[in-house]
Design a protein around this nucleic acid. Structure first.
Lengths: 252, 252
DNA sequence: CATTTGAGTTGAACGTGTTCAAAACTTGAA
DNA sequence: TTCAAGTTTTGAACACGTTCAACTCAAATG
């Protein structure tokens, strides 16, 4: 009931078959080395058909991103229930992300090449361009919201986005990581998660409020460059006092 | 005296002409829209000639990067003499970078697309792949070294690289910045420079030593992922005591 | 049943980055 | 002047992403 009118969903099946074949071949031979013709051939369709379902070769990457995201989302849910401490959850979610992507390490690089493109929906700026990205950020929102850690509301608001960017950084590292079994990446996760947790609790300290405020305003402004051509001031020099309800600010 | 044996340096001239034409056309029509054939045509050479001097279209970007880098380097020197306070210097150097790149805002995006590619010499990991990048980092080293600010030696060692990454982040923002005269980027520079300066002095505080050490070890490890397949431990759990000569650790 | 509709399919054709073998030119020596 | 050994230049050819006008055919409509 997705698109076509027929009950057999012939189109959907063809589309799935093409995607399946593509991912398989990407995995085996890499992205550049796999031609659209080869994909079409092996999927048993014509070249034109492949383009009927996927506007471009890069769109296959997009579909891949979507698919692995869903897998990661599912895997994360159970991990989220196992613990309610932010640090432990973050660690597990990141480890799951890497292991989900594992089979595609070889060609995952192109994902970043496209993500860095200003016109790509994956790029960290320009809000809400991509539903998958939004969903991905929502995962981190869930991670933060349901955690037992006390975090001031202003930070709580931006933290999901920040964690998403952080997680992209981890993936970027992983792409370059040629150590056996990607142990360096897992170690990096352990170490940085530790650091992030410390930073969060440090930033949650009431003494840090002014600096934190300033930083968060910055983040909010950076977040959507591509969005508006606006000229709204980040922060007037006379530090404006906002009366947000501060949840808490304890621990270390 | 570059390569050819003849005194007229015909080859060098041809190469320069091609590059000139290319940059001009990139500026006018954008990168994708400018074909190698068009460049060769307008430069008055054959297609093959263009490829004789530049191995690929992307290599023209590389040459562009090289050229603007030199311009920026020159402009920075005078700015470096004007002040010896890290914050002011950093601010000026970054502003100069943006104004140097200004004419190429339209097509600078591709620079990042290539930089994100694991095999590109521009990408932040994998050390010493590109001489220009190294030189660029050296500029920040100079900026730090000659500044009056007191910075502990361990931080001083990694700071240039960190600032280089930070400056890449600013450029990434600028690429997406569609505000008039890129005022948002300049504002971002002002605000983040402020933040960076605060962070540096915060990190220089002796109380922060353990956290700083930990973070710096991380940075050093991350810095060269693509380099070695190694498995060197970042930090054993029993925090090893290194007896580095600590320059100072004052302010705030 | 005949007709219409439109999703699905096709392969030829185009544009562009890149390669390459051969031609043209330059230089220095014989 | 002639020759050899480069260096530079050339354009045809190739590969691959992408487009598109035409075709097929099953379901809906009458």
């Amino acid at each position: 009931m997705r698109k076509g009118k027929c009950a057999t969903d012939k189109g959907g099946q063809t589309k799935a078959r093409i995607l399946e074949t593509a991912l398989e071949m990407f995995q085996q031979r890499g992205y550049q080395e796999t031609t659209m013709r080869a994909i079409a051939n092996r999927a048993g369709v014509s070249l034109g058909s492949a383009y009927y379902y996927f506007q471009s070769k890069e769109q296959l990457i997009q579909a891949f991103y979507h698919r692995t995201h869903e897998a990661h989302l599912g895997a994360s849910q159970s991990a989220m229930n196992a613990s309610n401490d932010l640090k432990a959850r973050l660690r597990e979610v990141l480890r799951l992300k890497i292991s989900t992507l594992e089979p595609y390490h070889q060609f995952a690089g192109v994902l970043f090449k496209t993500a860095a493109d200003p016109h790509s929906p994956l790029n960290p700026f320009s809000q809400e361009s991509d539903p998958v990205r939004q969903e991905s950020i929502r995962l981190f929102a869930q991670l933060v919201d349901e955690s037992a850690d006390r975090v001031p509301s202003d930070l709580r608001e931006e933290l999901p986005y920040l964690l998403w960017v952080y997680h992209m950084g981890i993936i970027l590292f992983w792409i370059h990581d040629s150590s056996p079994k990607h142990r360096r990446t897992y170690r990096l996760i352990d170490h940085t998660v530790d650091l992030v947790a410390r930073l969060v609790s440090l930033a949650s300290n009431p003494l840090m409020r002014p600096l934190r405020k300033r930083a968060l305003h910055l983040v909010a402004d950076v977040r959507d460059v591509a969005g508006k051509d606006g000229d709204s001031d980040i922060l007037t020099d006379d530090e404006q006092e906002d009366s947000e309800d501060l949840v808490d600010g304890t621990t270390v």
